[in-house]
Design a protein around this nucleic acid. Sequence first.
DNA 1: AATACACTCAACCGCACCACC
DNA 2: GGGTGGTGCGGTTGAGTGTAT
Length: 182
Amino acid sequence: MGRSPCCEEEGLKKGPWTPEEDKKLVEYIQNHGHGSWRALPKSAGLNRCGKSCRLRWTNYLRPDIRRGKFSDEEERLIINLHSALGNKWSAIAARLPGRTDNEIKNYWNTHLKKKLLHMGIDPLTHARGLTLACSPISRACLPPPTSATCRRVLGVLTTHSGFMQTQLRRPESRFCRAYFKL
DNA sequence: AATACACTCAACCGCACCACC
DNA sequence: GGGTGGTGCGGTTGAGTGTAT
């Protein structure tokens, strides 16, 4: 028998946090420290699992978090660190004071990947020329992007297609412009 | 103005790792 | 050494919002 996941207890709330919940969590941690995350929700009077509380605190409520746009310097640092460390978001975040791993991961996936592709750099290897190792998948087999999930799947598939390999070497091509909104 | 499409990011999930017994 | 519990990490999802048609 494996261990039971922490969030399986019935009745625990999921989804977006309310200002009241945030207030409870911040006040509790300021007064008592977080201690055991598993025990925290009960002590703090929150109907959440400990994991959810930890995530909310580390990614959003911590007082040392710096929010807002990433500077050019931060952007360069993320790209350099990613080329050295790969998807070690927590290690990258440790070098950027006030930024969380989640925030950096999101920024990478939504902005920097596209930016590197546009520059003709493979975001996986940071090599110029986009030499992706992959098996060919026919463009004709791919469905039109009809939803966010579908587009993400499509992104994975096309990133690994021979067709894309060819097209991505030409970031100015009509294909790349259309797919990456360049 | 209504609808469809595209983008962002907070939050969740599952797994791996570590400490403790 | 093996089992269990707690925590952290990376990948993924989907609601909310913005933009285009």
